[in-house]
Design a protein around this nucleic acid. Structure first.
Lengths: 191, 191
DNA sequence: GAAAAAACCTACCTACAGGTAAGTAATCAG
DNA sequence: CTGATTACTTACCTGTAGGTAGGTTTTTTC
């Protein structure tokens, strides 16, 4: 291996491009150039763009899995779990006005190959399912307060954050902060 | 004129393509074919894709303007105005799982030409500003209940709806309905 | 230290996107 | 009824996207 792990570098740049421009708006050359490599090198690691897309989403899934396992292992409180969930979009925004990968992929959903669609659905379910459990835990411990099912609440939160990140692009950071503040307030987290 | 108004037909199909696939994921041929016309015909009406994009957003703005003027003229109650606002995304969803045009354009924002960006920002402000006024009116008349500024509330609502439409693509209609129900409840609309 | 495998590069190829130039058919205005 | 205008078509052109075949250089393995 000339470079330690080109594959990881490819995924990193591809992921950034995904969140900054969308899946359809970047090419293999967009990835190759910053890495100082030719586009055939990308095809070596990911024969087709579909392969790349699937790998990208799978990595998101694995990372989220790790992240949550860490939180469970540390016996994080439901409130901390919720805050940890908020950290994800917050980092995206700070990191140059990126947007939630899931949001991008949902917008482009109809243009994407079946293999990617399945992964997208899986990622969406995985994230919302975990959040829902955390919320339910929080309610049982009377740390969080909301009506309706935790699954519903998870949807509302996910939708609000996803939309907020996007709106922040044209309305500024503060739009996102506003949404977060309102979500917290709604859950009874005074903060 | 061979056809009554090809220009309108072009905008109609382009708008549908925008909401189904995104701005970068459709070409002039995608518009031309269903209209039974050659792509040069599209270039006749809209020399560049940027022109088309700008026209598309301007039409959204004009239509929204008309829509709101109609509501004002009918002296619609703040509640009705809010419901009318909800009608927009609800129609998108029903109309084949479309997504909010603003959301699409925000996701693709970094790939779009300056001319389009300005229009996008303007559309976003126009819609949220009107919503904010309606919300404030509703609060003054004690028909709607919320804390914080009406502008903030408008952001939260816009973000939630935008995200909900997108999530509905992978999680089904019900995800959107859930978000709407929660928004209404939060505003004190029992329904 | 040689063979095999890994990680590339060079040089293509096809398809299509966006766009243009020049011509043609229908319509309208005087 | 004739010129100008409108609304196109045909036929291109350039650039780039995604992808492939075959060669070359490293690195690993034995």
């Amino acid at each position: 291996m000339r470079q330690a792990d080109t594959k990881t570098h490819i995924l990193d740049t591809a992921e950034a491009l995904l969140q900054n421009r969308g899946f359809n708006a970047f090419s293999y050359n967009h990835i190759a150039q910053p890495l100082g490599v030719k586009n055939a090198a990308i095809h070596y690691h990911f024969p087709t763009k579909t392969d790349l897309g699937v790998a990208l989403i799978e990595r998101c899934r694995a990372r989220f899995q790790q992240y949550t396992e860490l939180l469970e292992a540390g016996e994080a409180s439901p409130v901390l779990k919720f805050e940890a969930y908020l950290t994800l979009p917050w980092r995206y925004l700070r990191d140059g006005g990126k947007v939630c990968p899931l949001g991008v992929l949902e917008v482009e959903f109809n243009t994407l190959p079946e293999e990617m669609r399945l992964e997208i659905v899986a990622l969406d379910q995985q994230m919302r399912a975990w959040l829902a459990i955390a919320l339910e835990e929080g309610r049982e411990q009377e740390l969080l307060h909301f009506e309706g099912s935790a699954e519903e609440q998870a949807i509302v939160i996910a939708a609000a954050l996803q939309g907020a990140l996007q709106i922040a692009r044209v309305a500024g950071q503060s739009a996102f902060d506003t949404c977060v503040r309102h979500l917290k307030q709604k859950l009874g987290l005074v903060n």
